[in-house]
Design a protein around this nucleic acid. Structure first.
Length: 227
DNA sequence: GGCCAGGTGTAAA
DNA sequence: TTTACACATGGC
């Protein structure tokens, strides 16, 4: 990966070392997060699709609708008429698109959805990515948070935080970012879970679009933060 | 009121 | 191959 030559005040380090250091600081600040705001593994699957380009609060309303209707299980949700499904998930936005994507995913998963996610991580991941509407982030969120596979989830928070920290992948793509993290960190489900959870929390608490650098636990080695 | 949110696929340039 | 756009609701 490309490295800028260290400036006079910048410690000599690699992106990988920086990523590991960020992980330590996130853990020190937030503790060992095990996280996805869902009550069951199947909710993770549904939520992963519904949260595409959408605030989580809107996803919660949609999931609440499905829960009230008793549809938070694969066999029932899979057999729900399409227009009815659209109605339930409407609060999550882009609901026609998401209803179609959810239906395609449920169809691929089948009634025994957990069985469909068993196998070598990269094999299952490739299969998920062939489902229309399931891209890298959605696939990795399902694999990590619902099925316990050791894969790293890249999202808008991850990119924003790391970019501000001066970390850039060799290739600025989803897989480029994922490769950077998977290379830098030991392949460990709980570790990936806690790290990503910490990034999201940091992105909400401090590293917002308008950042609150003063109290950020990463400010001391973030080149973007005012000194 | 306008901007944006834990993306993805498609169609123009 | 890169860039732009559609999808759409609700919170700030």
């Amino acid at each position: 990966m490309m490295m800028a030559p260290p400036g006079p005040t910048q410690a000599v380090t690699t992106d990988a070392a920086l990523i590991r250091e960020v992980g330590l600081r996130l853990a020190a600040h937030y503790g060992d997060l095990h996280w996805w705001p869902a009550e069951s593994p199947f909710e993770v699957v549904v939520g992963a699709v519904l949260t595409q380009n959408t605030a989580w609060t809107n996803v919660e309303r949609a999931i609440a609708n499905l829960r009230t209707a008793g549809l938070l299980n694969a066999p029932r949700l899979r057999r729900t008429p399409h227009e009815e499904l659209e109605g339930y998930i409407r609060p999550s936005g882009t609901y026609r698109v998401k209803a179609r994507r959810l239906a395609a995913l449920l169809e691929w998963l089948g009634d025994d959805w957990q069985a469909a996610l068993v196998g070598p991580t990269e094999d299952v991941r490739r299969a998920l990515l062939r489902v229309p509407g399931i891209g890298g982030e959605t696939a990795d969120a399902i694999l990590l948070y619902s099925a316990g596979h050791p894969t790293f989830v890249i999202d808008a928070y991850t990119r924003r935080i790391m970019t501000r920290l001066g970390v850039h992948p060799a290739v600025d793509s989803y897989d480029g970012w994922r490769c950077l993290f998977m290379t830098a960190l030991p392949a460990n489900t709980a570790g990936f879970n806690a790290y990503h959870a910490g990034l999201v929390q940091l992105g909400k608490d401090y590293c917002r679009p308008n950042p609150r650098c003063e109290a950020c636990p990463l400010r001391t080695f973030c080149p973007t933060a005012p000194t």
